[in-house]
């Protein structure tokens, strides 16, 4: 986040991982729109929980959504949201969707430097 866009692939990585924009890639525009949808959905469903960017990775027909969340709700509620998100996004995007989350105690844990 602290780096400008031209630093992508140098000092920071992508937020969306897919091969749509390579030569012969499939559904480039749809993929972009879907990724925006996924991010909005995640931010709305996991309200005020994400402390990192939401990473969307696509491999074959699987979409994996990664990110870091705060431990401000109980583990049980998190599992409810995991089940709900995975299932509803699968229905919407019509492919298997998996969440890959990590939790941190405090949102300051993911601040690496102050500018």
């Amino acid at each position: 986040m602290a780096n400008p866009p031209h630093m992508i692939a140098h000092r920071k990585s992508w937020n969306s991982w897919n091969t749509s924009n390579l030569d012969g890639g499939l559904r480039p525009s749809e993929t972009a729109i879907e990724d925006v949808f996924i991010r909005k959905f995640m931010i709305g469903t996991w309200h005020a929980l994400f402390v990192s960017e939401i990473i969307v990775k696509r491999q074959h027909n699987i979409i994996r959504i990664g990110g870091i969340i705060r431990r401000s709700i109980s583990a049980r509620k998190m599992y409810f949201l995991i089940g709900y998100t995975e299932e509803l996004l699968s229905f919407w995007l019509q492919c298997p969707v998996k969440l890959e989350l990590q939790t941190v105690q405090d949102k300051r844990d993911v601040i690496f430097k102050y500018i």
Binding site: R76, K77, Y79, F80, L81, I82, G83, Y84, T85, E86, E87, L88, F91
Partner: peptide
């Protein structure tokens, strides 16, 4: 709980 979430999505 996870399954309950899935049911909610259904």
């Amino acid at each position: 709980a996870q399954e309950a979430g899935r049911k909610a999505a259904h």
